[in-house]
Nucleic acid binder design. Structure first.
Lengths: 64, 64
DNA sequence: GGGTCATGTAAAAGGAGCTTTACATTGTGG
DNA sequence: CCACAATGTAAAGCTCCTTTTACATGACCC
């Protein structure tokens, strides 16, 4: 399950810290998600997708 | 965070057991999600939405 | 060289997701 | 009445998500 968070964040010109603050999570959480160390919870995934104006499926890609 | 799983499952004519088998989770998991006892993981939410031909955001509604 | 910003990473701790096993209720059909 | 299917629920246990604190790196500016 990989995702486009890093690209979208870069395009938005935000640091991991700044994005975390906007979404109410720590920068380590953003970092872990970008690196695919784990998947976000469903509510966080929805907040992330909505923040970037995308559908959840567009941001997070299942590999199956 | 509530969802439309029960309605969609009913419309599909499937038991909780049958739906769980299709998605690779236990019937208790389906039951808990339908009752809002907890949110599914992101991969399960995506599988559920895809199974019903909907977007994740259409099936799971954030209350914020 | 010293400060700061952005990022990577790690450990400990707590809460959430999911499993299995098990028991209870309700309804339906023989 | 007796199965049987569908659902609700509970406990124990494991893994995953997220936090906090902390240290380390490289880039960049003064």
């Amino acid at each position: 399950m990989d995702n486009d968070v890093r690209e979208l964040r870069g395009a938005a010109g935000l640091s991991q810290q700044a994005l975390g603050e906007r979404l109410g999570v720590s920068r380590q959480t953003i970092n872990a998600i970008e690196q695919g160390r784990y998947d976000p919870s469903l509510p966080l995934a929805i907040r992330l997708a909505r923040f970037f104006g995308r559908a959840v499926e567009e941001v997070f890609h299942c590999d199956d």
